[in-house]
Design a protein around this nucleic acid. Structure first.
Length: 418
DNA sequence: TCTGGGGTCCTAGGACCC
DNA sequence: TCTGGGGTCCTAGGACCC
């Protein structure tokens, strides 16, 4: 067991925005927002020049424009993001085989077996930053510490474009003055609950007894936070885990839920979800839909089938019934603003789709063509799309709806490996 | 002026089984 | 005749993360 700071967390700074500044030198030193516009949409990422004015990812474009006069909106080169991030990950892999990528732009590294080759963790962190800047052209921050939680906090503190190493003797001194919001698992709600009790720093959190925290935040959150504050974090750096669910969603603006609209949107979503499942030889038994109504209230409805499914038409039909159930449960006629479809309870599904028969009395029983025939049809359409392009074939409602929303390339960036 | 899209995990109640 | 308790699955909602 090593007691040194052998876990590194490497995190590209303002990743999408930094890539735009790399590709277009006229954007360097300028406040940049990727996605959205001054009139609408949402900002997906902001450069540091924009962040100092309070612009953040997820913020409506009009608000960002108001906060930051002179903000430049760019559409985004989504194809390049994956390519550049992959190059960065290859640099990280030069220093240890134990790299756990947790999103497109960040990863944990365990360098305990590498120090005899590359020197102490601080030297490895510095070398990584230098190479990513020199070979890829992007700024990256690195934190090094004894645990994943501490390393991640260290990289946040190091931003932008910095390196922070926390030696074991200095952990408490480092952690105690920091705000609780830097901890993993503390979002806006938990932050407020803690603040209501006068707890704002990690040092104050340590003073709070574990049982008191569990009463305040719930058993799991309370226990986890207590342990993390005390620097007890047993998690190891591992490979990527398999996804437990696959979903897709689409924001609609504000629309009356007509049968045509619901059918066409769900068709599109089911095609995305089913296609990803089939591409990885997977299928799932539980179909969940989410409907967001005007006013941001959203509800979910789910149904668990007897057998796993991945056929687009079956997913569409089950989702459709669930969506109407959710809308009916609302009572009054309300506009909808988003539909989502997700499939969980996943299993491997090799060559054959064992989708039939469902019991005849099952109200969710798909009509004809039979499930296995649907699956075979989907497979041949998947193949045609692979050869001739995404729009070559498809169920009519899905092809009708090639909306002008977020580009598919952006959606793909967020997908997890199945 | 009205908010994207991909996920994970936890809680709590009810059904059901042993 | 009356009673208990544990485990698992399903459903709905919510907090959180990138």
């Amino acid at each position: 067991m090593s007691g040194g700071p052998t876990i590194l967390h490497a995190d590209l700074d303002a990743f999408y925005a930094s890539v735009e500044q790399l590709l277009d030198p006229s954007l360097r030193g300028v406040p940049v927002a990727v996605g959205g516009s001054a009139r609408g949409g949402v900002v997906l990422a902001a450069s540091y020049e924009a962040k100092v004015h309070g612009v953040q990812g997820g913020m409506p474009g009009w608000r960002a424009a108001r906060l930051c006069p002179g903000l430049v909106f760019v559409r985004g080169h989504f194809g390049r993001y994956q390519e550049l991030a992959d190059r960065v990950m290859r640099v990280l892999g030069d220093y240890t085989p134990v790299v756990q990528r947790i999103s497109i732009d960040e990863a944990f590294l365990d360098v305990s077996g590498s120090t005899h080759l590359f020197g102490p963790p601080a030297a490895i962190g510095a070398r990584v930053r230098q190479r990513v800047r020199g070979e890829v052209g992007l700024p990256i921050s690195v934190g090094a510490a004894r645990t994943k939680h501490l390393a991640k906090i260290a990289s946040q503190v190091a931003k932008p474009d910095g390196l922070v190493v926390v030696e074991p003797e200095g952990e408490r001194q480092f952690l105690d003055p920091l705000p609780v919001s830097l901890m993993w698992g503390v979002g806006p709600v938990t932050e407020r609950r803690l603040a209501d009790r006068g707890i704002r720093t990690i040092g104050q959190l340590v003073e709070e007894p574990g049982p008191a925290l569990e009463r305040l935040l719930g058993k799991a959150t309370g226990a986890t936070l207590h342990a993390l504050a005390l620097n007890e974090d047993p998690r190891k750096v591992t490979g990527p885990g398999r996804a437990g669910s696959v979903g897709a969603q689409s924001a609609l603006g504000r629309r009356a839920p007509t049968p045509e609209l619901v059918r066409s949107v769900l068709s599109h979503l089911a095609e995305r979800v089913g296609g990803r499942l089939r591409a990885k030889n997977r299928a799932g038994r539980t179909v969940t839909v989410r409907v967001r109504f005007a006013g941001m209230r959203s509800v979910t409805r789910s149904h668990t089938l007897e057998v796993p499914v991945s056929a687009t038409l079956t997913l569409t039909e089950v989702a459709e019934r669930l969506v109407w159930q959710a809308i009916r449960d609302q009572g009054a006629a309300v506009d909808i603003t988003l539909l989502a479809v997700s499939v969980s309870n996943l299993v491997r599904q090799e060559a054959v789709q064992l989708e039939l028969p469902l019991e005849p009395e099952d109200p969710w029983r798909p009509g004809s063509p039979a499930g296995s025939a649907r699956w075979a049809l989907d497979r041949s359409m998947d193949a045609a799309r692979a050869r001739f392009g995404r729009d070559a074939v498809g169920y009519l409602p899905a092809t009708v709806r090639r909306d002008a929303g977020v580009p598919d390339a952006f959606r793909e960036l967020a997908e997890r490996d199945l």
